[in-house]
Design a binder for these strands. Structure first.
Length: 444
RNA sequence: GGCGCCAUCGUCUAGUGGCCCAGGACACCAGGUUCUCAUCCUGGUAACCCCGGUUCAAAUCCGGGUGGCGUCACCA
């Protein structure tokens, strides 16, 4: 099988979103499945929109997710080499492009027309921006490897598009073609929002005499409320998801299935397994909706299968490194199967670190009897372990004819401050005799 | 509005003319395990957008509707 070369080409204009992560993942998987190379190319030709630090953030997050790139480029550095300008001028010389000095208008504005956009085509200007001179009445097409079908346009519907800005920087349309050709990219994988500009690229390839790579357009991930997933609606940036406490591997696994599915419908994949299984025929054609409940499930699954010591480190870091790692590790077995996110740890096990004052309304009517009895029984215990605590407490329930559930619930609330908690006796073992008795006493 | 893409349970999807009165997963509901919650186990509700056509046979092929999404900058 021929080696596939792919690239992920984000612009450093903000946070990396799950859509971007997905594009990177698929591109990575395609390349690696064929033992080929994955390229990271930062498209920073619009200096006005560049957000400081986002370049580094992108690299950090891709690394966190295990998407290692084999080559790295920054487009702005290539501008200095003059390659884009040269290509654009070549097109002008061959009459496939022309200089233009007026700016296009937004199609939503009144009076917009393609003709207006193209109107400086025959002015014979010698400077300004360079626009593509699109021929009329020609059919231009390509076969999309995601859709698995040919897509075509009549060039009469394609506008003369700017290729080189007057500041000498290329627009995306020129830069992708030149870069993908230079970098020997064999498969271009990008968002579906790029589909409408594909005929422009096709024409540039043709006029420049370059070989057109395989091109595929991924589905757009939709917001549950409708429309393309946006930054505003919920936190869908990778960074945001991470700070909510989702595990990186869970996010990656979740994203794998947002637009791709294997024949056997298997759902759980490590990155290595995904690369091995990956097959472009599994690409989905219709837009998926970002469904957080499924992410929650994936995250819970990953937490349950993470080694305790590893989970301990992640929780410790998530909580700001301020709580004793040893106590975290000790309590993990009690909460592990209850957690979906790292943030759940604190809400379920926080009482081990800080005493929580219970809402008195949570107690049953016999709570004083229950707690007094429990206090006495626990006080008598010399060897503080699970077996002796179980015995002591159960005997207390039997001797006093307490309702088992009510008894333990009152104890639970007194110790933890809540009704939904890890097993109470196990918790007491870890909490220790002194702290346990002290908490019960305060309520009585 | 022009151009383009898409259309199976609420959601992610399997399905490439008969094996499908449509299978799996999440979510949801019911039951079991359990001192709570959760985990785990069992069972259940729930879908082929509409209308025509082709065919002995269509979720699958074709046409037309309708709907959703994207895009139309010297932004990517």
């Amino acid at each position: 099988m021929a080696k596939i070369r792919t690239r992920f080409a984000p612009s450093p204009t903000g946070a990396l979103h799950i859509g971007g992560l997905r594009t990177a993942l698929y591109a990575y998987a395609m390349a690696k499945h064929s033992s080929g190379d994955f390229i990271l190319r930062i498209e920073d030709t619009d200096k006005k929109r560049e957000v400081p630090g986002s370049k580094e953030k992108i690299k950090e997050l891709l690394t966190l997710e295990g998407l290692k790139w084999d080559e790295y480029y920054e487009q702005s550095k290539r501008v200095e080499e003059g390659i884009y300008k040269k290509a654009a001028e070549k097109l002008v010389a061959e009459e496939h492009a022309f200089y233009c000095q007026h700016k296009g208008r937004n199609a939503k504005e009144e009076g917009y027309s393609k003709e207006l956009r193209d109107s400086c085509r025959d002015l014979g200007l010698k400077e300004g921006a360079i626009k593509l001179k699109v021929s009329d009445g020609e059919k231009i097409s390509f076969t999309d490897f995601v859709l698995g079908k040919e897509v075509s346009w009549d060039t009469s519907t394609v506008a003369d598009t700017t290729l080189l800005k007057s500041d000498g920087f290329p627009t995306y349309h020129l830069a992708v073609v030149v870069d993908d050709t230079d970098m020997n990219v064999t498969h271009v994988l990008r968002g579906h929002d790029w589909m409408p500009s594909t005929p422009v690229h096709l024409l540039v390839y043709k006029y420049l005499g370059y070989k057109v790579p395989e091109i595929g357009h991924l589905t757009d991930i939709l917001d549950p409320e409708g429309g393309k997933l946006s930054k505003r609606k919920g936190s869908t940036s990778l960074d945001g998801l991470l700070s909510e406490g989702y595990l990186p591997e869970a996010i990656l696994n979740f994203v794998m299935l947002l637009g791709w599915a294997p024949k056997d419908n298997r759902e759980q994949f490590s990155l290595a397994e995904f690369v091995k299984t990956f097959d472009p025929s599994g690409f989905q054609k219709s837009n998926p909706i970002f469904n957080k409940e499924k992410l929650d499930w994936f995250s819970g699954e990953y937490i349950r299968r993470t080694q305790n010591s590893n989970l301990k480190s992640q929780i410790w870091e998530f909580l700001g490194k301020k709580y004793p790692a040893e106590l975290i590790e000790q309590t993990i077995p009690l909460v592990k199967e209850r957690m979906k996110k790292l943030s759940d740890y604190w809400s379920m096990a926080g009482f081990f670190f800080e005493e929580k004052r219970p809402d008195m309304a949570l107690f049953g009517s016999d709570y004083k009897k229950h707690l007094t009895s429990a206090h006495e029984a626990l006080l008598r215990i010399d060897t503080w372990n699970k077996a002796s605590i179980d015995d002591a407490l159960m005997n207390e329930v039997k001797d006093n004819l307490f309702n088992t559930g009510d008894f333990f619930m009152d104890l639970r609330v007194a110790i933890t401050g809540g009704k939904f908690t890890p097993p109470i006796n196990d918790s007491i073992v870890i909490l220790g005799k002194e702290e346990t008795l002290s908490r019960i006493k305060k309520i009585i």
